[in-house]
Design a binder for these strands. Sequence first.
DNA 1: AATAAAAGTAAGTAATCACTCACTCAAATA
DNA 2: TATTTGAGTGAGTGATTACTTACTTTTATT
Lengths: 222, 222
Amino acid sequence: MTNNIFEKLLAQLNTKPKTAKQEQIVEAAIQLFAAKGYANTSTAEIARVAGVSEGTIFKHYGTKERLLFSVIAPFIRELFPQLAREAVEETFTEDTQSLEQFLRTLIKNRIQFITENRELFQVFVKELMYREEFRKKLFPFAMEYVPETFKHIVDRFKESGELRDDIPSETIILNVLTFLSGFLITRIILRGSDTISEKEMEEAVQFIMEGIRNSHKPEANE
Amino acid sequence: MTNNIFEKLLAQLNTKPKTAKQEQIVEAAIQLFAAKGYANTSTAEIARVAGVSEGTIFKHYGTKERLLFSVIAPFIRELFPQLAREAVEETFTEDTQSLEQFLRTLIKNRIQFITENRELFQVFVKELMYREEFRKKLFPFAMEYVPETFKHIVDRFKESGELRDDIPSETIILNVLTFLSGFLITRIILRGSDTISEKEMEEAVQFIMEGIRNSHKPEANE
DNA sequence: AATAAAAGTAAGTAATCACTCACTCAAATA
DNA sequence: TATTTGAGTGAGTGATTACTTACTTTTATT
């Protein structure tokens, strides 16, 4: 059913020549879906906000659901493959010196992208929670590309001794991603921040790097 | 509008003598809200699953929204005040010996509670994302009780030298909560786990305690 | 047993939903 | 210039929505 729609949309992304009204529709849809959620937004309201007839929406997108995927798909394409390839390569060659610097740059890069596309991120996360088939499509996708790209970087930092080698690389990557998803969801969605301060990002990097234990003072001296 | 509904429900929680049909309604609502989301679940379907007339739902709860809050409110009451008071006191007196042990016990305690009430946790998180007024009610509530209760424990572990004292207690608590929310959301909601393994919990505790940096080997020896 | 109050029901209601259809119009093509 | 094509329209469509109302049944009180 919904299985191949997503893939088809991802494939035909660049071949789409949008009309002016189509752009108005997409813009209105993003805004309304982010604010009220997909299920609570009617096609009539989208048409009204877009300044377009309701029929026009269905002329172009066929169903309400296909409009949703047309809106989300480009965001996902930018979020993940870029994360896994371009952004990493860029960051990695730029600041090869230290793990902490690499992590800091990468995190700031992604946080900036997401805060710039806050509404899309909101729509994406909310629908991710409601749609199992959507998750099933995306998890292998994310769980293949992301660790694949990070694995050799993690391994390299292990060899340099900067990264602890008593924990499997997969576990390390998973834990960092877990913290980051918590960070983004609480800040962008729950708190509704439109920006995240340098200080808060720095605290996050610190936490990922060091945890909370005081490892500078000797422990067994009591 | 919805402002005092939540508080009223929280207040009158224990004074409610539920009938058999009321319990069937609540059970059906939890199940359906968790699976399909509040907005995608009709009162007709709840009535059908509960084996009850649709009118009975409105007899008892008045509106669909009040049914939702009747379902969520007890969960929140158990999740937060217990977290902030009973569970902490219990854990703290039980294992006063080490920070790591305290953290481990507390985390396992909360993870167990949430996995035991997975459906309610799903409903809670999803609605939290869609309802701003709901968040505004809950954030002060959580941000008052939780740090208040943890503050003196964190301070105590700082004094004992087990917890790093170069970071404000509030930041430490916030970072731990951020990781935990990410942990629970990705596992319970996105991955849909019905249980979380001992191993995975242990890895989470490790990450919170130590981060990812290798602090055992000397860094400046190259 | 009589009465009152509460619990439960089934058939409504108006409003709203996603979506369709017959149509116009403008621009490209022949 | 004649014709085709695709964008755009707006008044529909039946289905579904949350909720109401008039009524019956069950339970509690005296």
